[in-house]
């Protein structure tokens, strides 16, 4: 189901809440891209805001001058939606960024051994 522009991309799952920090997302994404020497990025978003309202929280991120191709996909707000993403993209290079207190999502990420970082606090699966 992915577009050609998504092939070979690095995948970042963004689990968003109200209190996430734009700069951390930007810095983390840049770090990951440079470390992995990739030029394409797919953001998979889990958010309770709904489509396309969730993009308001991503404006600053999307306005940053990443020298990459960027694709943004919205998946929904539930744990099941997160599981869908992981199952579809588990063979791709992936990291998750989790904002706020999202225990149920962290549990899923750990269950699938997906590396994740808490925005504001470092933790690894």
């Amino acid at each position: 189901m992915c577009l050609a522009i998504e092939r070979g991309a690095y995948h970042v799952i963004l689990i968003l809440n109200y209190d996430y920090l734009n700069d951390e997302v930007i810095n983390k994404v840049n770090e990951v891209m440079i470390h992995n020497n990739v030029r394409k990025l797919v953001l998979h978003v889990i958010s309770s805001e709904g489509r396309p309202t969730y993009l308001e929280k991503l404006r600053t991120v999307l306005s940053s001058t990443f020298p990459y191709s960027l694709v943004v996909r919205y998946w929904g707000s539930t744990v099941d939606d997160l599981v869908k993403i992981i199952k579809l993209y588990r063979n791709e290079s992936m990291i998750a960024l989790v904002s706020g207190d999202a225990q149920e999502f962290k549990g899923v990420l750990e269950g699938f051994s997906i590396n994740y970082e808490l925005l504001g606090v470092r933790a690894y699966a």
Partner: peptide
């Protein structure tokens, strides 16, 4: 009929 992403930004490499 495939699900499209909401936003695509074509970068310099593409």
């Amino acid at each position: 009929g495939e699900e499209l992403p909401d936003y695509v930004l074509v970068g310099p490499n593409d």
